[in-house]
Design a binder for these strands. Structure first.
Lengths: 349, 349
DNA sequence: CCCGCATCTGACAACGTTGTCCAGGCTCTA
DNA sequence: TAGAGCCTGGACAACGTTGTCAGATGCGGG
């Protein structure tokens, strides 16, 4: 007997902790497998009586369709990935939520991951999402080389970059007008009589940071002011470094009378430092803050609309997925200067 | 000729926009399918030379393993779901990030969704996540009946509730000491001489809201103070309602001299209202706020540790997944009173 | 009474991966 | 030099679903 038939041995795979499958439902309802599939997916061609029996069996067994298998068969996962810097940052919460809402409107779920501003981690995350076959990716880049995504994009993964542009590849991106916003903010200080204006921002390798610095420089140039090196500080946004930077430019040989801060994390530290100064120092900040209007004085900000960034990017993503063959585009959203007091303080020498 | 063999017709399935599969890699490398699998998964039993050839083919084709298929075969998705109320709320950002970090440490990805405080949407989301066969669920409940999860939990989906307990089922939950925190906060106001103290909170059907109200009532009772109905207001947290509530209790026949606010959204509105009052009104708030220390006066808060909530819950989740047979437990995390000025103002009648 | 048609149902293969098992080649020893 | 044992590689089935297609059933008309 060389070939005993044997059947139910070989307990190779896991069966998901014994979840019922369509086969089980079919057996219980006394119908074929495909009929169950039809009922579950609301396809036509099933008599009401049969449908009832199937529904009953589904109910009784607590069946829930396995989307993994479905995905494997259909090729679309109805999920998109979002790679951002840090979900805990108040700037990214609303952005993420906006992306989620658009995804939801298209019946998709959102998988997100934080890169912690680490390019390697960004890549690891993005590729892990691709391995899960997300339909699309929204990426807030940490690194500046995204050629690793080329095969993925070629394979059909819709991709949109937000907040910062992609590096090394041609892709959609949705940005705030960082340059223009910073320029306007600094010009606002100039208009209120300041000439010695400091700039404290994030690491220069970050696109938004360098753009805002460029806006600062341009505004100063526009005003015919020669910028001193000591007035500019770019680097990590941890409180210790920012504090040191602020204190230095406030106490140097030609101390600044106003400060422009390059993002919300820098701002909160600078506000603390300014509160300790004996003389009033003007402040305009990039990014709005909750409660900014209730401080004394209120904080004048250049606000960007995080939710709009997310919404625009996600819209664009789904337009790609709907098959519209679009050329990569760079969409820039305007910023808004909100005067609340701190930016209108006159210079105090 | 009844059975023409035919092969490459029947273009039924999608092939993921023509992504290479292991089969393609195998063909190109001139090896068997399983050998590619071994290389991709770092399994032993492949000569360095063969491995090199396979790696080369992978590189050349831009192959990336399809995790959907892998999941189908292995039964674990290495992903967990997080259902929360609103990612854009500064309380949930850090919580979500903490869950993500724990997941990452276990090699899992995080899928999250916002329920917008809608029980139906919570259920829809949670079940969609189950259909994707997430290994576990972390849920911040919007509803108070979670029996719909029973079949899922029985089928092996690890589940932990956070911030609010589950309803109708016995499951792990991780909570802040809402009662104790509120009680301590109100007692703090009493200790500074207040007797007419108001409470403004969220809708009473939300567990945290009712617990905090209970803390308020108990603290008042402890102090032997009879609470008037006009001093308590529970309802939606939109600014309009909160403003009205605050203004009413500040102007009634026995106006309050201090207010205890039940969550961060309420707090920001109340701060605005109090800033408009001619007399100083004391304030203690549940939940910490960025910049709370920089307001005049600084806002005294009962702080809960959102990140710790998330971390604890996720840890517990993965302990369940590691197979430890645990009895459902209720873990309560302490709150911390941070005095900054607003809670230490004396009563001004 | 039988045929054709429409309607409903089910068998089967395929999606891309991994677990099992066996075949073949090699080395090492007696 | 033959045999035992190890190592490498590959054929095959299975995971749970859906697309294709053909079979079954019932009905009306010729």
């Amino acid at each position: 007997m060389p070939e005993t038939p044997r059947r139910a041995d070989r307990p190779s795979a896991p069966r998901y902790g014994n979840r019922p499958t369509m086969k089980d439902v079919a057996a219980r309802a006394g119908v074929g497998l495909k009929t169950v599939s039809r009922v579950v997916n609301g396809e036509p061609g099933v008599t009401p009586e049969t449908e009832r029996r199937v529904q009953e069996a589904i109910e009784a067994l607590g069946f829930r369709r396995n989307d993994s298998a479905r995905v494997l068969r259909k090729g679309r996962t109805a999920s998109i990935g979002l790679v951002l810097e840090d979900l805990a940052d108040p700037f990214y919460g609303p952005l993420s939520r906006a992306v989620e809402e658009v995804a939801r409107a298209h019946g998709a779920l959102l998988i997100n991951g934080s890169s912690a501003e680490d390019p390697d981690r960004e890549q690891e995350l993005a590729l892990a999402l691709c391995a899960r076959r997300v339909d699309g990716l929204v990426i807030i880049p940490a690194g500046d080389d995204h050629r690793y995504l080329e095969p993925e994009i070629k394979a059909g993964v819709a991709t949109v970059f937000v907040d910062r542009p992609a590096g090394g590849i041609d892709a959609d991106c949705v940005l705030s007008d960082n340059f223009g916003g910073a320029r306007q903010g600094v010009a606002h200080l100039v208009a209120h009589g300041h000439r010695r204006i400091g700039f404290i921002g994030d690491m220069p390798r970050i696109h938004t940071a360098s753009e805002r610095l460029r806006g600062y420089r341009t505004a100063m140039e526009d005003a015919g002011i020669a910028v001193e090196d000591a007035w500019m500080s770019l680097g990590a946004t941890d409180p210790a470094r920012v504090r040191r930077a602020a204190e230095e430019m406030l106490s140097g040989p030609s101390p600044v009378t106003a400060v422009f801060t390059g993002n919300n994390r820098v701002t909160v530290t600078v506000i603390r430092v300014l509160a300790e100064q004996s003389r009033p120092v003007a402040l305009v900040a990039f990014d709005d803050l909750e409660l900014a209007d209730l401080l004394q004085p209120g904080v004048t900000v250049v606000a960007q609309d995080a939710a709009a960034l997310g919404r625009t990017a996600a819209d664009r993503l789904f337009r790609q997925l709907d098959g519209a063959l679009l050329l990569p585009e760079r969409i820039e959203l305007p910023t808004r200067l909100i005067a609340r007091g701190s930016g209108e303080l006159p210079p105090a020498d």
